[in-house]
Design a protein around this nucleic acid. Structure first.
Length: 592
DNA sequence: CTGGGGAAGGGGCCC
DNA sequence: AGGGCCCCTTCCCCA
């Protein structure tokens, strides 16, 4: 099993599905492996590790500084410190020589500074008196804890000259060499090995040629780097200020030698997402069936088709961003040259994210990071624009006044909703009970519920009627997407499911949907359409959803779409049209 | 159940 | 390319 697969396995939870994983045509994130993020995991993990550190449990490394002793964990130190990463990484590469190491003397780091750095390592919070800032900066530089060093520099008003890895690595390398020369501990003796030193040298060269040139975009994703997010504070601790976090954001990836780390030997605790992202270009293979017009994959329908086209989570075909597929040929091997492309595919949920720089923002929805904190009430947000809007609550700013009344609103869309009250417009009508709503989401809520089942006194109307009568946004949307029209009919899912899927003939209250003789025909078409619907589209309609799942599986088992190469949108639209026609024909007959 | 407010997340535009 | 800003949709919560 390669590192990529291992990473995937760590990232994803294999959920038993009615349709087995063997169905290679299953789309990632839908029928195969499902990535279920546990945003609190990192916090809990870190909290437990900190508890272990405090109680000395499982501590396999003791750091000493001028007489003070700090029990700690090698894995944590390797995760947070470039110095230890190099030290241990070299040993790992050369065997299990580090097993017996237990004490590392760090007299060149002031005890208070070392204590603060350890606290940072285990809580993601750096607590230091301003007087000790320089010691911490020095210690962070020595130990290769880049984001701390940057933060200290920023506070001290120093510019981080070429904070690149060159500077830090040279320092770290120099430090390690110096320590080795001093022969102060068995650990350093272990790292004195020729191969280790070679490795350190190689690391530096490699970095100079790659990572510096292609840093990851500064984003909260970088929080998952060993020196920042993976070590975020547990909920009980004081979170770092937004300023600190922003500093870490901009520097979190610095000093990280991931580019040369051996697969499967990643010493970080839980920076899997980032590593996975970074590793992708190295291990990415072209997906089996990448539609040439992949730049149009923004639409959900297209996305469905895309994922249907052989993108299999957990297989060797790692989901690659669409742009990468089309425009970027990742340099295999040492090249981690990967700049953010647009659109990009989320490695967790496989969603295509449009817009430059939007993927990090999206990733925060998985990591649960909320780097932007309100200075007034402490509430944290994933996005600064949300924080900005939130601040209006404190400032009292309500920039969207209603022209018809004194009401003012925080959001433009609130005003929009409000205006519909004045106009009395209720453009969103339930196709079943004809109840009209001013807001689309209210109509959706109404449709998802069963609030109007009892009011069902007449047949569901044909799509064309819905389109004409709705004539609001809904109408346009449904017209633009026949599937939506079909889906809207799913509000009367009892009708569809009972009448079509089960071949029922109006057993439900109300007039029959079809004539008996045509039930099978309509049923067949409806089944086909359902089977092609994206599962999320059917999610609001559990009955349809389950049926669609079942049908999809059976159809694929029957080889109707063995390669997943069908044109999903066109075909589905056609089927939806056919279903609509069928229903329309039935109604004509009924009316006659 | 409905109306309304607000939060969350995505996309477009622009710098 | 990254990020800020804005708009939009969807969802949740509460009265």
């Amino acid at each position: 099993m390669d590192a990529k697969t291992q990473t995937l396995r760590r990232l994803q939870l294999t959920v038993p599905m009615p349709i087995k994983m063997g169905k290679v045509a299953m789309s990632p994130g839908e029928d195969g492996l499902i990535g279920i993020p546990f945003p609190e995991h990192s916090n809990e993990l870190l909290s437990h590790l900190n508890d272990q550190r405090r109680t000395g449990l499982l501590c396999d490394l003791t750091l000493t500084s001028r007489g003070a002793r700090y029990p700690t964990h090698r894995s944590v130190m390797a995760a947070v410190s470039l110095y230890f990463r190099r030290l241990f990484g070299a040993e790992v590469g050369g065997g299990e020589g580090a097993g017996g190491l237990s004490v590392c003397q760090l007299d060149f780091v002031a005890p208070d500074a070392l204590d603060a750095l350890l606290e940072f390592a285990y809580t993601a919070t750096l607590t230091i008196p301003s007087s000790g800032m320089r010691d911490v900066l020095q210690g962070a530089q020595f130990l290769g804890i880049q984001c701390v060093a940057d933060a200290c520099r920023d506070i001290l008003g120093e510019t981080a000259e070429v904070v690149g890895e060159t500077t830090e690595e040279q320092k770290v390398q120099h430090t390690a060499t110096r320590r080795i020369g001093e022969g102060q501990s068995s650990m350093e003796k272990a790292s004195r090995r020729k191969t280790d030193r070679k490795k350190v040298k190689k690391i530096g060269l490699h970095h100079n040629s790659t990572s510096i040139l292609n840093p990851l975009p500064a984003s909260p994703i970088s929080h998952t780097s060993p020196t920042s997010d993976s070590l975020r504070s547990p909920p009980s601790t004081q979170p770092p200020s937004p300023e600190q976090e922003e500093l870490c954001l901009k520097s979190g990836q610095n000093g990280d030698p991931r580019s040369i780390r051996e697969p499967g030997r990643d010493p970080t605790l839980n920076g899997e997402l980032l590593h996975w992202l970074q590793d992708r270009p190295r291990i990415a293979h072209p997906p089996p069936h990448v539609p040439p017009s992949s730049d149009k994959l923004s639409e959900d329908d297209d996305m469905e088709g895309f994922v249907d086209d052989g993108m299999l989570m957990g297989s060797t075909s790692i989901p690659t961003s669409v742009a990468e597929q089309g425009a970027v040929t990742p340099t295999v091997g040492g090249g981690r040259k990967r700049k953010s492309q647009t659109p990009q595919q989320c490695p967790v949920c496989q969603k295509i994210i449009h817009g430059a720089g939007k993927l990090p923002r999206h990733m925060r929805t998985h990591t649960g990071e909320k780097p932007f904190q309100c200075s007034a009430c402490g509430v944290r947000f994933t996005r600064n624009d949300k924080l900005k809007i939130h601040m209006r609550k404190h400032t009292g700013e309500r920039p969207y006044p209603c022209p018809h009344c004194p009401a003012r609103f925080l959001h433009s869309y609130d005003l929009k909703n409000h205006l519909s009250l004045h106009s009395g417009a209720r453009p969103f009508e339930c196709p079943l009970c004809h109840k009209a709503f001013a807001r689309e989401d209210h109509l959706q809520r109404h449709r998802k519920g069963h609030s109007c089942l009892e009011l069902r006194t007449r047949r569901p109307r044909r799509v064309s009627e819905l389109v004409e009568e709705g004539r609001g946004d809904v109408g346009r949307r449904e017209q633009s997407n026949p599937l939506e029209a079909l889906s809207s009919q799913a509000h009367s899912s009892t009708y569809l499911c009972h009448s079509m899927l089960d071949g029922g003939s109006g057993s439900v209250a109300g007039p029959p949907l079809m004539f008996e003789g045509d039930i099978e025909r309509g049923r067949s078409l409806a089944l086909q359409a359902l089977a092609q619907l994206g599962h999320h589209r059917l999610a609001p309609y559990p009955e349809l959803f389950l049926r669609g799942l079942e049908l999809r599986g059976s159809m694929e088992a029957e080889g109707e779409d063995p390669g997943g190469t069908r044109p999903p949108v066109a075909l589905r639209n056609r089927w939806a049209d056919e279903v609509e026609e069928e229903i329309g024909d039935e109604e004509v007959g009924e009316e006659e």
